[in-house]
């Protein structure tokens, strides 16, 4: 027999971007500790539907921690109290019987609430469109070993590329800054020879777009790194600062 717990949920409900939101409290009984957090949310929604109430809207997709779609600010932490995982990888065994769990959407000027716990993260797509790519004239695939890349650089680029663009960094930051995201996207390309060619243009364009979209200024608190489900390092932020300043000095 698996263990079950009873929890009280304080969930942010908001009808639309302009509507005034408020917390609603729900009691949910018989939650299996083997279930994931999102399965618990599904259970809540089934209960709400059976009571002829509106289910809670929340984002989710792959439910295996790679797509970056799930969000939720749970008990004061983006992606919940556990470390280095996304909300979909969070399990109910992390909670105790009788716990009150507060669930909020990402709160940031750059991520307006669409409904309930779902926020609009298309600002990240706009930043990527501003320069987070390598322009290539496609031809035959070159030999993989034609351009030597040091293991150290390859590892750093891979670590930066592990960013799934979920927005937890912005949600965690007291300044609503998107620097960890932007720096990871700049670093994964700037570290490699293929991306180096356009590094200056990319850093300038992506930072300009980030500022334009109303994200805050980084003050190096490190909250983003601590809450990042993929452990992206803030040394990427210093790299972005360097790339940006060097690009500006070369103007």
């Amino acid at each position: 027999m698996d263990k079950t717990i009873n929890v009280t949920l304080k969930v942010w409900r908001q009808r639309g971007p302009k509507a005034k939101g408020a917390f609603e409290t729900y009691k949910l009984n018989g939650v299996s500790t083997d279930s994931s957090f999102l399965e618990m949310m599904d259970q809540l929604n089934e209960q709400l539907i059976s009571e002829r109430k509106e289910p809670v809207v929340f984002d989710h997709d792959c439910r295996e921690g790679i797509c970056g779609m799930c969000s939720l600010y749970i008990n004061g932490h983006p992606h919940g109290p556990d470390e280095d995982i996304t909300t979909c990888q969070l399990h109910m065994r992390k909670f105790k019987d009788g716990d009150t769990i507060t669930i909020e959407p990402w709160r940031s000027h750059g991520f307006p609430v669409i409904r309930d716990l779902m926020v609009d993260r298309s600002a990240f797509d706009k930043i990527i469109q501003a320069g987070g790519y390598v322009s290539v004239n496609t031809g035959g695939a070159p030999d993989a070993n034609a351009i030597p890349i040091s293991k150290e650089k390859a590892d750093l680029a891979m670590d930066a590329a592990s960013c799934i663009g979920c927005g937890a960094c912005v949600a965690a930051c007291k300044n609503g800054s998107a620097m960890l995201f932007v720096s990871a996207k700049v670093s994964q390309l700037a570290l490699l020879p293929q991306g180096k060619v356009e590094a200056a243009r990319r850093a300038k364009a992506m930072v300009a777009k980030m500022d334009e979209l109303g994200f805050g200024n980084c003050t190096n608190t490190g909250a983003c790194e601590a809450e990042c489900p993929k452990n992206v390092s803030i040394s990427n932020i210093a790299r972005l600062n360097r790339e940006f300043l060097c690009a500006k000095l070369k103007d």
Binding site: G76, R107, S108, G176, G214, G216, N217
Partner: peptide, 13 residues
């Protein structure tokens, strides 16, 4: 700027 970027609603927890 950082205060504005944080959004109008604050976290409860």
């Amino acid at each position: 700027q950082n205060y504005i970027a944080r959004g109008s609603e604050r976290y409860a927890v």
